[in-house]
């Protein structure tokens, strides 16, 4: 993964210039709740408060779920820091029909700037960053009989955080913050990874049945070749969220 190379070279360049003492590294985790939702298809079977059965709205964002991440920040001055955040989202499984589910995963790289108001014990901060996301959406139909993976294509968005940093007498500080992600993702390819839970039908399927390329436009009379992926219009899925994250910062620089 080029991300690791990037991180390593980033660190190397900085330490080469003898600046590593201005670096800090943090680890964090939390839960993000859906925000700026969309609806999924035409709803799923549900019952209302009077016991009537029918279809209910599925209001969702695939950004909802657990997040774990790390940030490496370089201190420009006591108030400003710039750096890179990397985090991983394991989306909550969402049932969109009986036996049919959606689950997202996303690796996010977030170049960001952080502004800190320094106080003795508790220092408020806010940060903003640009998200480059590598996502995938696993959709499982009929209790896992057909499973497909939507992936490829980059996802862009913004991350904004507000929080407080709690100082200790050691090199380690703790923080609590609210993270807001404003993001969507339009996968560029879908691949069937399971076709037949009990009897594997996948080998008997053609390339065009297994793979779908999601494109921005489709011509009027496109002829389907069974040896090539089929084409469908690209669709964007909501990945926005809001949540609370806890973490710790290890200062590599002296006070």
């Amino acid at each position: 993964m080029s991300m690791r190379n990037f991180l390593v070279s980033f660190l190397l360049i900085l330490s080469f210039h003898g600046l590593a003492q201005k670096l800090s590294i943090s680890f964090e985790g939390g839960y993000q709740h859906k925000l700026a939702t969309a609806k999924k298809w035409d709803g799923k079977p549900a019952t209302d408060q009077f016991g009537n059965s029918g279809l209910g709205l599925i209001n969702y964002s695939l950004g909802q779920g657990m997040i774990a991440g790390t940030e490496i920040m370089y201190r420009l001055n006591p108030n400003w820091q710039v750096g890179l955040g990397v985090n991983y989202l394991i989306g909550s499984k969402m049932e969109f029909w009986i036996g049919d589910t959606f689950q997202s995963k996303m690796l996010r790289l977030i170049p960001q700037a952080n502004f800190r108001i320094n106080h003795n014990k508790v220092s408020p901060f806010f940060s903003s960053g640009f998200i480059v996301g590598f996502g995938q959406i696993i959709s499982s139909r009929d209790y896992g009989d057909i499973v497909s993976k939507r992936s490829k294509g980059l996802s862009f968005g913004f991350k904004n955080s507000f929080g407080v940093d709690i100082q200790t007498n050691t090199r380690i500080n703790f923080f609590i913050k609210t993270d807001i992600y404003t993001q969507s993702y339009g996968p560029k390819q879908s691949e069937k990874i399971v076709w037949g839970k009990d009897f594997d039908l996948l080998p008997s399927k053609t390339v065009s049945e297994i793979f779908v390329d999601y494109v921005d436009s489709i011509g009027e009379n496109e002829i389907q070749d069974p040896n090539k992926p089929s084409k469908a219009l690209r669709r964007f899925y909501p990945f926005s969220s809001i949540g609370v994250n806890l973490g710790l910062v290890i200062r590599m620089f002296g006070q």
């Binding site: 709803g43 059965s53 029918g54 279809l55 404003t182 969507s184 909501p238």
Partner: peptide, 25 residues
């Protein structure tokens, strides 16, 4: 946000559909 099977049937008199969300970010 919720429609009964009767409301969803083609014989239903009211035009009702499950809500659609549009992006405003």
């Amino acid at each position: 946000d919720f429609l009964t099977w009767e409301e969803l049937s083609i014989t239903a008199t009211d035009n009702k559909e499950i809500r659609i969300f549009y992006p405003y970010s």
